[in-house]
Simulated scan of single mutants.
Amino acid sequence: MDDRLERLVRQYRRELLNRDELAGEIVELLHRDRALLPIVAGHADADVRRGAVVFLSEPWPWPDPSRAAVDVLLRDEDPEVRAPMAAVVEARGRPVTELPANGYEVRYLLANADLARTLVDELIAAGDPYTLELLATNPGLPPDVRQAVIRRANPAPGSSADPG
């Protein structure tokens, strides 16, 4: 067992952390050491396992050991672990239809996520140069859409899209 994880569990049991704080601390721990994911996913305490679900619900790509951990969490005996994990897996299979207001997550999603075509069309129409720059790097965009993003980001001189 990992000493860092057990320290968090002890703090939780002594009520120095509430359930959400424990999950947040586990997420931070997993960001620093992703190899702990199988240990967290298989922990005896359901609230610890819930921290693994919160970690896996983030939009970033899952780390290498995650598939086995996901399978364990999908079969978890506790419905407060199993159901949210099933919802995370289902959500990952759908395109992103809206973006958070700002932050690292937005930048990551623009550059990497499977975005709904309606969202992409809205982003192109809005014409924000920074957004378009990130969107143009998204490998999931079809070539014709990527070209539309690039054209909108770099309008031809004298065109109606040219701000100058």
Rank of each mutant, 00 (worst) to 15 (best):
D2E: 11
D2G: 12
D3R: 14
R4V: 00
L5N: 00
E6C: 08
R10G: 11
Q11D: 14
Q11L: 15
L16D: 01
L17T: 09
N18Q: 13
R19L: 11
D20P: 00
E21Y: 10
L22G: 01
L22S: 06
L22I: 09
A23N: 04
A23W: 01
G24S: 12
V27G: 02
E28F: 05
E28Q: 13
L29W: 02
L29Y: 04
L29Q: 03
L29R: 03
L29G: 00
R32K: 07
R32G: 10
R34G: 14
A35N: 12
A35S: 15
A35W: 03
L36G: 02
L36V: 07
L37V: 12
L37K: 07
P38K: 09
V40T: 11
G42N: 03
H43R: 11
D45P: 02
R50T: 08
R50Q: 13
G51I: 05
A52N: 08
A52H: 03
V53K: 01
V54C: 00
F55H: 04
F55Y: 15
F55A: 00
S57L: 04
S57F: 03
P59L: 12
W60R: 13
W60D: 12
W60V: 11
D64Y: 14
D64Q: 15
S66C: 11
R67K: 15
A69W: 02
V70W: 03
V70C: 10
V72Q: 08
V72M: 10
L73W: 01
L73C: 01
E77I: 00
D78M: 12
E80A: 09
E80R: 08
V81E: 00
V81L: 03
M85R: 01
M85Y: 01
A86W: 03
A87W: 08
A91H: 05
G93N: 14
G93F: 08
G93A: 15
P95E: 11
V96T: 05
V96P: 04
E98D: 09
L99C: 02
P100A: 10
A101E: 15
A101R: 13
N102I: 00
G103L: 07
Y104C: 04
V106K: 12
V106Y: 09
R107D: 14
Y108N: 07
L110I: 12
L110K: 09
A111T: 01
A111V: 03
N112V: 05
L115P: 01
L115K: 04
A116F: 04
A116E: 13
L119I: 09
L119G: 02
L119M: 02
D121Q: 12
D121I: 07
E122C: 10
L123V: 04
L123K: 00
I124R: 04
I124N: 08
A126Y: 05
G127A: 08
G127C: 05
G127V: 02
D128L: 06
E133H: 06
L134K: 03
L135E: 02
L135A: 04
A136R: 06
A136E: 07
T137D: 11
T137M: 07
T137V: 07
P139V: 11
G140N: 14
L141V: 12
P142M: 13
V145M: 10
R146S: 12
I150T: 15
I150G: 11
I150P: 11
R151C: 14
R151W: 15
A153F: 10
A156D: 14
A156C: 08
S160G: 08
P163K: 04
G164Y: 10
